[in-house]
Computed example of a mutant assay.
Amino acid sequence: MSKKKDPGVWQGFKAFLMRGNVVDLAVAVVVGAAFTNIVNSVVKGVINPVVGAIGTKNLDHYASCLSSTCEGDQVIQIMWGSVLGATLQFLITAAVVYFLMVLPMAKFLARQEARKKAGEDTPEAPEATELEVLKQIRDELVAQRGSQYRGR
């Protein structure tokens, strides 16, 4: 038996990689990773100091104890500051994505759709057939000949 590569599998894999949605997904992951750094910097550099004006600059320090005392090794703490920080990061990320990406894209697509509908609504001039064009040329030539004979 000869070992033969199945061209269908490789071609299918190549087609899968070249699909637009796979490339778009890869770009989105890379941009998302870079965007995460920006959001983290905004939270650490802007949000945490604003919250720090009220209390501590690090939201992770906000916690509540379930035990009667908050001392010792057996302390049970609810770290609600970490949850608050993560929630703020999520809200900031969602707001930036919505206002800088989703909303402008939706407006752009709506304008394109409106232009497309406006283009479809305008009645196009019916194209003249070859026979009609030839009849018009004939009529023009006859009219020109008639005026030439009258002028003499």
Results as ranks from 00 to 15, higher is better:
106 A>F: 11
36 T>M: 13
92 I>C: 03
59 L>W: 00
57 K>F: 09
65 C>L: 05
36 T>P: 05
64 S>E: 12
31 V>D: 05
73 D>E: 13
73 D>M: 09
31 V>H: 06
53 A>L: 15
89 Q>Y: 06
100 L>M: 13
75 V>Q: 04
60 D>E: 12
34 A>L: 15
52 G>H: 03
100 L>W: 07
89 Q>H: 08
101 M>W: 13
52 G>I: 02
108 F>S: 12
70 C>P: 00
79 M>I: 15
32 G>Y: 02
41 S>V: 09
37 N>P: 04
61 H>R: 15
93 T>G: 07
86 A>N: 08
30 V>F: 09
91 L>A: 13
63 A>L: 12
67 S>V: 10
68 S>Q: 10
72 G>T: 02
74 Q>A: 15
71 E>R: 05
62 Y>G: 02
69 T>M: 05
89 Q>E: 08
105 M>S: 14
77 Q>R: 12
37 N>E: 14
42 V>Y: 03
79 M>R: 08
47 I>D: 00
29 V>T: 07
73 D>T: 14
94 A>S: 09
75 V>Y: 02
100 L>C: 14
80 W>P: 00
32 G>V: 01
55 G>T: 14
34 A>P: 03
62 Y>R: 02
29 V>F: 10
65 C>E: 05
73 D>I: 12
76 I>W: 06
31 V>T: 05
101 M>T: 13
71 E>P: 02
70 C>E: 03
41 S>A: 12
71 E>N: 07
77 Q>K: 12
59 L>I: 04
77 Q>S: 11
66 L>W: 05
96 V>L: 15
57 K>L: 09
33 A>N: 14
39 V>Y: 00
76 I>M: 08
57 K>S: 14
65 C>I: 03
33 A>H: 09
39 V>G: 00
37 N>Q: 11
58 N>P: 04
49 P>W: 02
81 G>C: 01
98 Y>M: 09
32 G>H: 03
75 V>L: 02
84 L>E: 01
105 M>R: 11
83 V>I: 15
89 Q>K: 10
87 T>I: 07
60 D>T: 11
75 V>S: 02
28 A>I: 07
80 W>H: 05
92 I>S: 01
94 A>V: 15
36 T>E: 10
82 S>R: 11
56 T>I: 11
29 V>E: 12
95 A>N: 06
46 V>N: 03
49 P>S: 02
37 N>H: 14
53 A>E: 10
91 L>E: 05
82 S>G: 09
105 M>G: 08
31 V>Y: 06
93 T>H: 06
107 K>N: 15
94 A>H: 07
43 V>A: 04
70 C>G: 04
45 G>Y: 03
87 T>R: 08
69 T>L: 06
89 Q>F: 07
49 P>Q: 01
97 V>P: 00
40 N>V: 09
66 L>F: 07
108 F>T: 14
29 V>D: 09
78 I>F: 08
49 P>T: 02
64 S>P: 06
108 F>N: 14
90 F>D: 09
52 G>L: 03
38 I>Q: 05
